[in-house]
Write a protein that binds this DNA or RNA. Structure first.
Length: 554
RNA sequence: GCGCCUGUAGCUCAGUUGGAUAGAGCAACGGACUUCUAAUCCGUGGGCCGAGAGUUCGAAUCCCUCCAGGCGCACCA
């Protein structure tokens, strides 16, 4: 609908210029939006205001010229008016709205799918926690944001692949193996000192216990280095499996798991460094190898090969991103914890050195979750083993409520997650507000069926009887749903969907309390049943993007 | 010290990329179940949009300077 208005305006503008009523102007982009005040029409355009400076004319006069040259080819406009400093307000004909409702009913679960992405191949990498411990609540936020962004982009017409980068190389993993060995010795009766660098969670003991059950105490006497390597492998695998299960139960399923270790095995890192060398982006100071990230705006150069001859994490990460592009993705989205923000310039430097545009890599920062218990900050540390796991949140708060909680806020805003509060408020959580609206609609439709009232189809429903203000508001909201998808996808801001849903549910609840859907008036009943059917379609489609269920009964 | 993020109602946050009179939820107070589900609705109060200057027809939104909080500033990941 918005697009149609924009087209009309563009045409009118061209005509005005051709007629010589307006000087040659370039229009940056005009805005067509639904004004807050219904007196200002269904849509309002600020074109004349933007043009005023360029055309050096009174904005109201420009608006008048545009208005005179509007050619309503599709016959959708009831009337237009010029208001305020020079807004052009559009009033849409009723039957156009009715036609739009029919369209929703026909498209059903396809409604809201748009072609904004044009089938572009996009990869989204998220969570990517190293498998040294179970996922905790901090990872949960990134997981949901990533998952919903992929759903959103799929709806907006992109071809998406979801990927988890497994940081299974490096010191942290070595510490994991060491930690298991220490617990292994302890369980075999040795007295041990636990260093601060090691992981203390109970899951380490469980893994050590499993090894004893299967293989006994034979590793007490074997070569320590080899044992640590073996224990690292066993523990990493077991923890990763657990992570996958937790994620699946949280509604997050990846298309690919990409191992850092594999990257080394197939010498992807070496190849990358060679390539950078040939391009002249690296230099040696005799002991270490540096990458000239400052050539691309980073504040200092970065080490890629350490004094001890091993590549840095950064080196592997560039190789990984090169690999992503090599797989044919046109756009790459990384979702990181906000504490990694200082890492952005060097990552962009990396891909630019490889010849890719900076814009091809989008990085979304998700602020860390500040975990509270009854208002008191709770310590969060994988190493010390003091943390609230994703599993606990799932069990205590529930999947729908937990997901919705994370999705309601902009990803880059700080978030306090109070466990006790989340549990206590669970019945007043906004997610239930939306789900309840859905359940109510289902209940009405069921009632209609029980009373033998046919669920209406468009052809024999006269929608012109829908004249309540809430009815008009809801119809407009339903029609604007694809625009919400578009905006959220364009800006990569999933929180817009819950806000849209809350508003739609709000109008519906208010409407429900004022009006009966099923009444003596057959014609009105039919029209209203049709309307709530389309509301249900939009609620279902939007909740599906969020990965939140749409219950029929509550 | 340098960089990034945040500052909007008592609390938690939106604000359609510069638009018309700044919104919602919680909390407080007062009302609504003989009804298609009261996990709902209706009403009331609540604001120097952190502060100051600037840009223009128009600023919560953009520029600059401060203030406060968070996070970074590794040959860790």
């Amino acid at each position: 609908m918005k697009n149609k208005i924009t087209k009309l305006l563009e045409n009118a503008l061209n005509v005005s210029v051709q007629k010589g009523q307006l000087p040659e102007v370039s229009l940056p982009y005009m805005e067509v939006e639904a004004p807050a005040n219904p007196e200002h029409g269904d849509y309002a355009a600020n074109a004349a205001l933007i043009l005023a400076a360029q055309a050096k004319q009174n904005p109201r006069k420009i608006a008048q010229i545009i208005q005179e040259n509007l050619l309503d080819t599709g016959s959708i406009i009831e009337k237009t008016q010029i208001a305020g400093p020079g807004f052009i307000n559009f009033f849409i004909k009723d039957d156009v709205w009715q036609q739009a409702l029919k369209n929703i009913d026909e498209q059903k679960e396809k409604y809201g799918f748009i072609n904004y992405g044009g089938g572009k191949k996009v990869q989204v990498e998220f969570v990517s926690a190293n498998p040294t411990g179970p996922l905790h609540i901090g990872h949960a936020r990134g997981a949901v944001v990533g998952d919903v962004i992929t759903n959103l982009l799929t709806t907006a017409g992109y071809r998406i692949s979801k990927e988890y980068y497994i940081n299974d190389a490096g010191n942290q993993m070595n510490n994991l193996g060491k930690s298991v060995l220490l617990r292994y010795r302890e369980l075999n009766g040795e007295k041990i000192e636990f260093p601060v660098t090691c992981y203390r969670g109970d899951y380490i003991k469980d893994i050590a216990g499993d090894i004893i059950k299967k293989e006994g105490d034979k590793y007490l006497k074997s070569n320590e280095e080899e044992t640590i390597r073996y224990f690292t492998r066993v523990a990493g695998k077991s923890i990763l499996e657990e992570i996958k299960v937790d994620l699946r139960d949280f509604g997050v399923v990846f298309d690919e798991y990409f191992s850092e270790k594999e990257l080394y095995k197939e010498s992807g890192v070496t190849r990358l460094l060679d390539e950078l060398q040939t391009q002249g982006f690296v230099y040696s100071d005799g002991e270490t190898l540096w990458f000239k990230t400052t050539d691309f705006g980073d504040e200092k150069d970065r080490v890629v090969i350490r004094k001890n001859g091993e590549p840095t994490y950064f080196a592997a990460d560039i190789a990984y991103h090169q690999n992503k592009f090599a797989r044919g993705f046109e756009m790459i989205i990384d979702i990181w914890g906000a504490d990694h923000h200082g890492y952005m310039p060097r990552m962009w430097a990396g891909i630019q050195a490889l010849g890719y545009e900076k814009e091809a890599l989008k990085i979304i920062l998700v602020q860390l979750v500040n975990l509270l218990r009854d208002g008191v900050p709770a310590a969060m540390s994988t190493r010390s083993g003091e943390f609230v796991t994703l599993r606990e949140v799932l069990d205590e708060v529930g999947r729908d409520a937990a997901r919705y909680n994370f999705l309601m806020r902009r990803s880059d805003s700080h978030l306090d997650f109070d466990l006790e509060l989340a549990k206590k408020q669970s019945s007043e959580n906004p997610v239930y507000y939306v789900q309840y609206a859905h359940a109510r609609i289902c209940s009405i439709l069921k009632m209609a069926q029980e009373r033998g009232i046919a669920i209406p189809v468009y052809t024999d429903t006269d929608l012109s009887v829908l004249n309540e203000p809430e009815e008009k508001t809801m119809i407009k909201m339903l029609v604007s749903y694809p625009e919400t998808i578009n905006g959220a996808a364009k800006s990569l801001e999933p929180h817009r969907i819950p806000f849209y849903l809350n508003e739609l549910a709000g109008v519906f609840h208010s409407y429900y309390n004022k009006n009966k859907v099923i009444s003596e008036n057959d014609q009105l009943t039919g029209a209203r049943l049709f309307l709530i059917k389309t509301i249900r379609i939009v609620l279902q489609n939007a909740l599906k993007i969020l990965g939140v269920s749409a219950p029929e009964k509550m």
